[in-house]
Amino acid sequence: MTHIKINKEPVELFKILKFEGVVASGGEAKAVIADGQVKVNGAVETQKRKKIVDGDNIEFMEQEYQIVLE
């Protein structure tokens, strides 16, 4: 599991995917979320602007990421 550090919360889901380089662009992030390819805390998430906070887990393409507030 990879840890993603954030310095404020909440952060929108698509921004985390984009800024961490999980996907190439914000548009791609929105597309994979809308397509149901991303899970948050074990459940498929289709809200692009889902608010992500400390302790949340994100799964995408068999990779897991845990959000940690600095």
Rank of each mutant, 00 (worst) to 15 (best):
K39Q: 11
K8A: 12
G27E: 01
I58N: 02
S25Y: 03
V22N: 08
D54Q: 09
L17F: 11
I16R: 00
K48I: 07
N41D: 10
A34W: 12
F60W: 12
A29S: 13
I67N: 00
P10G: 01
N41M: 09
V32W: 07
V68T: 15
K15Y: 06
N7I: 11
K18P: 04
G26W: 12
V40L: 04
F14N: 00
V38K: 00
K39T: 04
F14H: 08
L69M: 15
G42F: 15
G42Y: 14
Q66E: 15
H3V: 14
K51T: 10
V11P: 00
S25A: 08
V53D: 14
G26L: 03
V44P: 03
G21P: 02
V40K: 02
K18H: 13
G36D: 06
G21W: 04
K8T: 10
L69F: 13
Y65E: 11
K8V: 15
I67T: 04
Q63E: 13
T2Q: 15
I33A: 02
I58P: 04
I33H: 00
E45T: 06
E64Q: 14
G36P: 05
Y65V: 09
R49K: 05
Q37H: 07
F60I: 12
F19Q: 13
K30P: 01
L17W: 13
E64F: 09
K50R: 14
I6S: 06
G26I: 01
N57F: 15
L13C: 02
N41E: 07
A24F: 04
I16H: 03
F60P: 03
V68S: 11
E64G: 07
I67D: 00
E9I: 15
I4A: 03
I67Y: 05
L13H: 10
F19H: 12
I16P: 00
I6M: 05
E9T: 10
E62C: 07
V40Q: 04
E62P: 03
K18G: 02
G55A: 13
K51Q: 15
Q63V: 09
V53A: 14
K5F: 10
V44A: 05
V38R: 00
A43P: 03
E45M: 10
V11T: 11
L69H: 11
K15S: 05
V38P: 00
V11Y: 05
